[in-house]
Amino acid sequence: MKPVRTLARVMLSGIFVVSGARNLQNPSRLVPAAKPVTDRVVPLIERTWPAVPTDTETLVRVNSAVQLGAGLMLATGRFTRPAALLLAGTLVPTTAAGHPFWSNDDPAQRTQNQIHFLKNLGLFGGLLLAAADTEGKPGLRWRAGHRIGHSRRSVQRAVRTARREARIAVRSAAAARRLPG
């Protein structure tokens, strides 16, 4: 199954690597479309991280750099689960800014944006699957539960053994008192 996972990750990450590199080199072409989304996000960024630059072009560059870096991590199999989550996070503002079909008056443009919106929704689903994929190994939740269950069973065995040994000691002590001495 490993070759399938590897190939799927490379295929899934390709769009992010290519568009991330392209948009990092030329972010100004995306600024007009991104501005309505960044205008809504900037107050939150300024409250949370006041020192971070909040102009639209810088935010487009940051989003592009994250897509490029996380796309390369996903493609190479390094930190695949966090990379998939990062890519999913970058896809939300990218989709909202790039494909707002709900605001198009032209039916042809509306249809095109709707198709791209749904494509990105499919990519988002694939990224969520990649983020949840443990590559056949047990996840952290299972391992923690298994370890707790193992510890609980060990404690229960120790308690049963201690009770059994206590009963044996009581019987031995009672038998020793009954012996003439």
Rank of each mutant, 00 (worst) to 15 (best):
A88M: 10
L44K: 12
T6G: 04
F117Q: 00
T54H: 07
T56V: 13
K137F: 11
D133H: 04
L127C: 07
R81F: 09
L85G: 10
S19W: 06
T90E: 08
I115D: 02
L118N: 09
G20N: 01
L129W: 11
Q67G: 07
S103T: 14
V159M: 15
A34C: 06
G136M: 11
G139Q: 11
A169M: 14
Q112F: 15
A34P: 01
P180C: 02
A173Y: 05
G145N: 15
G122V: 05
R29Q: 15
G20E: 01
L140H: 06
K137A: 14
T54Y: 03
N63F: 00
I168T: 15
R61S: 06
R167E: 15
W49P: 00
P32T: 06
L86W: 10
G149H: 14
G77D: 01
A131L: 03
A130I: 00
G69T: 13
T111Y: 04
L91I: 09
K2L: 13
A130H: 00
M1C: 09
L7R: 04
L30I: 01
V92S: 03
A166H: 14
R5I: 13
R47L: 09
A166T: 10
A70K: 00
D106R: 03
A131W: 11
T76Q: 05
V10K: 08
P27C: 05
S154C: 05
T58V: 13
G125F: 07
A97Y: 05
Q114T: 04
R163A: 15
R61P: 08
A132W: 10
G149L: 15
T134C: 07
G139F: 05
I115H: 06
P100T: 01
V66Y: 05
Q156Y: 03
Q156A: 12
V31Q: 03
T94D: 01
